[in-house]
Write a protein that binds this DNA or RNA. Structure first.
Lengths: 211, 211, 211, 211
DNA sequence: TATGAATGAGAGTTCATTCAT
DNA sequence: TATGAATGAACTCTCATTCAT
């Protein structure tokens, strides 16, 4: 019925409002410093409503991180289908990831502090309840983390002789990773993407073997 | 008097115990998760005693960060006196900093989250009350932050033609900075310093101009 | 009309489903620990529907207690019609009550805590709205509580010389009452009814005058 | 020092104030209905202070129950030393227990509801932190619960031929137990102890074998 | 009549900070 | 200088109840 649809639409609207408020406030003040009350006040909804959509404050965080992982995996799958040089794939993937993180900069300190206190691990990420619209088809066996994706590309490049082999792929992956982090909190007066691009050049120059 | 000296020694002893406990616990559990009660219990002192030495929980953090800055500045001054190639200075400074951070890894997420929420800025750092023993002589004009130090070395290298000039010095500085961050939270099974050294090679290869 | 009948039947069906779910869950988890949402989920109905049948969560409890009182009164009336010795009536009534409570054990702690905090009193019990099908005919002057019923039987026994008279009837009534309570929470490995029967023997031996 | 003593005395005073307020309010309104804020307001102390003395709201309950068990065990030990008939011991123990419960009537519904939802068991009771003044010497091997104590007395009476043997000791124990419960919530206009005494007569008459 | 998303008062608990000793 | 009991604002989370559909 239209009535059911309307209700459903309203529900999705509320969920979206909550997520957007959370993203905004996490970005502005950080996760720890943002209270559930803050989020719901920003979303113009009652506090209790939060718990109709997410099980806990940590749950919405997981939701957000999971979303990012999903988007990244989609892009990676897409890039895999076209066959290119590892360098190109790496470049594309890097810039795509940069864009996502640019819009959700708050996640990085969370990844960091989570890693630090051994809290939720990047790979134990589960979708929160009621994520049907972003849920993966069962066909996709497992979500890959940033690390897995970049590792894979770099190893392919090393195997094909495109990239230097005297530095472990994991180390290079970590460098890309850290570039995102640094750029997220950069105080240099250039844009996030310009920042990222410079560093991309630097690392690429450091790893591509010229014949 | 001996009496006064004893008191003085005891005072310094307590302060040291507090700082060491704080460092230990911040490293173990993170800043947010460590309570003042935790610190003082570890230091085997009463809770109230904390506030004889630091104005607030945040204050001891500033103190720790300030200490790091002081040590770094000392090293930089020392390196300045010997005249070397920028590349060598950079390398030395980088490895020295790595060592300090290796022993105080907890500071990095704090720098990040602090930078993020616009809390205490790296350059607004003030010594906490009663720091006589670590305080700089008035002769030293200003403490330089990591950023300032690396910027200066890199700019010198660019000016002398040792380093490439098509990438802003600030960007390169940030890369070094981010290497520390990433290595602090690395899950790769190699030591912090080995990790750092690989990345140092990578960046150096990316910036040094070969003739 | 058939239409009205259907609606009527559906209405009764929903009410029954709610009551049964409530009984089941109250018995399983206790009253406090059972939420309205739990009940309606068990009944496979929407939360809001609950409030079409009961005014509040407490209301359904009153309803359940009222039902028990009604059943007990019916039995008592029936026993009154046959004329027997007080001892036999007491025995019958006791075992009948035991059976009811056996199936609704959760009510006893409620009686207790209700009595305790002076909440709804056993005798202020009112039928909840819309109880037409269980409602008593106006002809029945008043519902009698457990206490009234047992009191009456025991006083009759004392008057006829069957039971000892040196102990107030109310006290004996209370003993029967407490036997139910204790048996409800017994951790002894025998059945509720076996437990009850042993105690019946004990009390009967204590009150029946042998000539 | 006197100063330490004063502090210590004040601390004990606060603990006592909290415990007394809790007892009063639990008795008045029940455990569930009493909030920590209520208790501390009654005790004229800040809310946070509660958590300097007890780990949680449930903790103070355990503390109170533990106290009762300790007192009961002491009495039992004492009675054991004097050698009497089981009937006398039972009578003494019963009346002593009645007195304790008379002053802390609120505990019974708690025992009940705890038993019901399988929460803390009577025998898993642990002293709460900082109970030095009521703590048992290590010499006392184990606290016995009400049930254990009464069971032991009744079995002794059955073994010596004082009590009837056709009814399991556990059942008789439970009857005593239930008498406390019922008397705690009695609405009969006689005192708790008078109530108890009548029932004691009834049960004794039911179990003592007359030759 | 049936629904379930929205609500917000109120619960238990934490912890940086104060202050009388 | 050292102490630690006292504090209460602020937090996360629960749930009976409402109301627009």
């Amino acid at each position: 019925m239209a009535e059911i649809n309307r209700r459903e639409r309203k529900k999705i609207f509320s969920q979206k409002a909550i997520v957007e408020s959370a993203v905004k406030l996490f970005a502005q003040k950080g996760y720890q410093e943002t209270t559930v009350a803050d989020i719901m006040s920003e979303a113009d909804l009652g506090i209790g409503t939060f718990y109709n959509y997410f099980q806990s404050k940590e749950d919405i965080l997981k939701h957000l991180l999971f979303q990012i992982i999903v988007e990244t995996n989609d892009k990676f799958e897409e890039l895999q289908k076209e066959s290119r040089l590892a360098g190109e794939t790496l470049r594309e993937m890097f810039l795509f990831t940069a864009e996502i993180l640019d819009s959700k900069r708050f996640v990085l300190p969370l990844f960091l502090s989570a890693a630090h206190k051994g809290g939720f691990k990047e790979h134990s990420m589960e979708p929160s309840k009621d994520m049907s619209e972003t849920e993966r088809p069962a066909s996709m066996p497992k979500k890959m983390t940033f690390k897995h994706i970049f590792d894979q590309i770099i190893k392919a490049g090393q195997a094909s002789g495109e990239f230097r082999q005297d530095i472990p792929a994991e180390i290079i992956t970590e460098m890309f990773h850290s570039v995102f982090q640094a750029a997220s909190f950069s105080s240099i007066q250039i844009s996030f993407l310009a920042n990222i691009r410079y560093k991309l050049i630097l690392i690429m120059d450091g790893i591509i073997l010229k014949k």
